[in-house]
Design a binder for these strands. Structure first.
Lengths: 209, 209, 209, 209
DNA sequence: CATGAATGAGAGTTCATTCAT
DNA sequence: GATGAATGAACTCTCATTCAT
């Protein structure tokens, strides 16, 4: 009876392992050729499977994409956390935000993914469940920033709002930079981000007085 | 002799009219079902044509999209201009920016379109020519804002940077709001925009001293 | 009443002139991009017309092609005639044949055209009338050769057969050379033609004894 | 463990069988309506498939064509080989060549196919790989003829050249006959081929002395 | 679990030709 | 005569997904 459970556990472990392998293949395909080339055929082929096999692990293509994005957000989260973990309180928030910006500059594809999946209503076939999961990830990413801001002395509510405001600024810069519009408009993403963050910190420091 | 010119002119007028009708059909299809459903077949059908007929008016699908976006930007431009044309100098910049925000809140599909087409040349089938044209439109949209900011006394360079920074903020807010993330994060787009613009104006007022 | 005839004649002359202009445009398009690119649109555009206009001069695309081929055969005919007009009787036949070969080496597109129009039963939309016309052209092209061969002393019947046999050899060489197979098989068209013609002349010289 | 291999083998066998069925359908379509009508849609329909299904068996239309031609060349090869395998050395070469001629007289469509596909790489969608394969087939078809000619005592080089010269003659006769020009010129393909081959054999016999 | 054949829908685009103006 | 819009049919090919094996 215990044997049966063990078998089930092992089976599940194997399943998870293979699922991870598929996700890894998807990651490779996606990083190599962008969303366009990340078709089920291609992912399956890269993973050493045939198309049908993927459906034992993912019910639809968008779910793979969601996992991809989830992983990306996890890594982003680690990056942001690390960046905002050290240094004196004044600089932590800015460092976290800057890490967010730098992450996407280094992973432009992941930005596309986010834009694709978070796009519009209906959100590209994402189930509410998946949507909730991704939201959780996003909140997790922002927490260290929010805490760092709160550490500057403002209330939690203000900190949350400032965090999201910064998020908006960062997303806007990334979006316009990725689409080449920033260059057309004669601005540098790095400058804009730097300025925004400096003012944010100044604002909060003043607010504290 | 004048008759020939008249005929040609009338013909051209008719052509333009039909082209506009096609664009209108595209707009309807697009607003009804998003970019996904805006296929040549669908547009043609909505316009009362067979697919091939569209190619007398547009050489490729992306050109229709580009016209769609161009029209949208034109209307956006008028909205922004009108909003930033009146009132005392202190409020003009903010009013222009807010009009930008409000426009896209009222035309969420146009935001999708912009995100799709402004993803850079090559990726989408935009010719450099079309890309340039759209860039021009965008710059035109921003000019009244930039001028209003410059009217607050800062130099042109600062005005341009502030304009783009505001654009980033607005785009970020719109993006996150459209994707439903803002709600998840417990923030209101209107608040964020309001706060950003207030601070921007304050910043510029201080800088002037 | 004479005036009416004159008008009709002038009209016909103009018609013929424009028809020639269209044919010329077709020739340019065809020589520039081969049969593939010689669409009605392209030809019309090159001729400064719109597609529909061509149908006042040619009832179908294949008729333009036929005229193209007819012109080509006319020029080929002149080339062959000139080549076989001079020199001593021994060499005339060979010279004519070689001119045939050289012509198509220099006008590979015309060979394609011939292959296209003379292909299979039904002959690509050619009317019997057009087919007869092209046959006449072909016979005209061969006549100087046939006469040169007959001039070597064999009977007319033999001369005709030898002419056609040579035509077959030349077409075969041209076909295989144009398709790149000759190179694959390690042979040179010029050599093959030279050898064939030398033997043909020898054969006829012997037969005369 | 052997079971898996068996399964794989059976699968492959089934695949091959179905592929052959598709090729057969293509053959039927092609023989019924020529190359023009041999579209993917038509072939799929004839084979009882939807168009997309064909792409599990052939990556592109030209690959089906290539297989069609390959099969045809294989059968041609067998015919030529058999014909040139028996009889005394004097007649073998001629018999092989005549078999070549007779084959295409009996399979006029295959001639069209060869003319279409052998028009060189690039022009048609043949990959270099396919082109090479078809070249190999062609060389294989010619080998028995070349050997029979060499068996008459001339050197290998001469044999190769004579073989290709004969090929040219045969192709020329077939081309002109298929296009109806031979009849117009008052000649019979059979006669021309017979005469050419007789002279070829005589030439080689003389050269041997 | 994995296969891979097959579906079914659809994509954008091209073309010769027709015909009202 | 000339326009050029419009047709209607065709084209190859791609895709996510399903399902019998």
């Amino acid at each position: 009876m215990v044997a049966r459970e063990q078998r089930a556990a092992r089976r599940e472990a194997v399943h998870g392992f293979k699922r991870a392998a598929i996700l890894d293949a998807a990651k490779r395909v996606f990083h190599a050729g962008g969303l366009e080339s990340a078709s089920m055929r291609e992912i399956a082929s890269e993973a050493g499977y045939t198309p049908g096999a993927l459906y034992s692990y993912y019910p639809a293509k968008e779910h793979i994409y969601a996992d991809l994005l989830s992983d990306s957000l996890a890594e982003l989260g680690r990056t942001v956390r690390d960046a905002s973990a050290t240094g004196d309180p004044q600089t932590r928030a800015g460092a976290g935000c800057h890490a967010f910006y730098a992450y996407y500059r280094g992973h432009p594809m992941d930005l596309d993914l986010g834009l694709y999946l978070f796009q519009g209503i209906g959100r590209r076939g994402l189930t509410p469940e998946l949507d909730r999961q991704l939201n959780g990830r996003l909140i997790g990413v922002l927490r260290p920033i929010s805490e760092a801001i709160a550490g500057l002395g403002c209330g939690q509510e203000t900190a949350d709002q400032e965090t999201v405001a910064a998020l908006c600024q960062l997303c806007g810069v990334l979006l316009l930079e990725r689409s080449g519009r920033l260059k057309v408009l004669g601005q540098e993403g790095e400058d804009l981000v730097g300025k925004y963050l400096a003012e944010m910190v100044a604002r909060l420091a003043i607010g504290r007085d």
